[in-house]
């Protein structure tokens, strides 16, 4: 029986971090099933789904990664998945929409937008922001499959927030962005 672990790692970015971490996991017999990483403000963070032989423990993983020679220590978190769960049990992004926001930078934008999502049981699948010359841009991919309100109500709520906060907010179906940016039309 294999164990399924979800591992998150954060460190000051430098060349070789992914090689070091995956090397340490390989030494434990780990097989990386999925990995996602990003660099923000000079810090790398990555999350991995890894299967291990049944005798490997969370402590073994901590120890193995801690032994990687690095100027700065890795901040680590390890979670074992229950036997009943699989890495590919990812909820399908049905009824997935892209929320885009543009406007002057001000405090509380992410909180306000995510609160509207949370209040209406809209699940945020992905979120990215950028700030250029005091112009704030946010792109949010979210699923409205289990939303407790209609799409029209949700759009209206975002519209009202955008008006109050002087932000331009649009909510469009995810397929539209794929259709206009990808070569293959699904």
């Amino acid at each position: 029986m294999q164990k399924k672990m979800v591992i998150s790692v954060m460190s000051k970015d430098r060349p070789g971090i992914i090689a070091d971490v995956t090397g340490a996991l390989l030494e434990l017999g780990g097989d990386v099933a999925d990995l996602n990483q990003t660099v923000l403000c000079g810090y790398l963070t990555m999350i991995l789904g890894v299967t291990f032989p049944s005798d490997i423990t969370r402590e073994d993983i901590f120890a193995s990664i801690s032994h990687v020679k690095s100027r700065e220590k890795f901040e680590l978190s390890v979670k074992e998945l229950p036997e009943t769960e699989n890495f590919n049990d990812i909820p399908q992004a049905e009824e997935s929409y892209i929320l885009s926001l543009q406007g002057p930078n001000c405090k509380g934008i992410v909180h306000a937008v995510s609160s509207i999502c949370g209040r209406n049981n809209v699940n945020i699948i992905d979120l990215g922001t950028s700030l250029q010359q005091d112009r704030y841009t946010m792109a949010v991919q979210c699923s409205i499959k289990d939303a407790t309100c209609t799409l029209e109500e949700l759009r209206k709520e975002f519209e009202e927030y955008g008006r109050d906060a002087e932000q331009t907010i649009m909510m469009q179906h995810y397929d539209l962005f794929r259709a206009t940016n990808e070569v293959t039309l699904h």
Partner: peptide
């Protein structure tokens, strides 16, 4: 997830 510049180019096309 698509890149934000891809998203914004589509948004501009729809909005403006």
């Amino acid at each position: 997830m698509l890149r934000s510049d891809q998203i914004l180019s589509t948004v501009e096309m729809i909005q403006k």
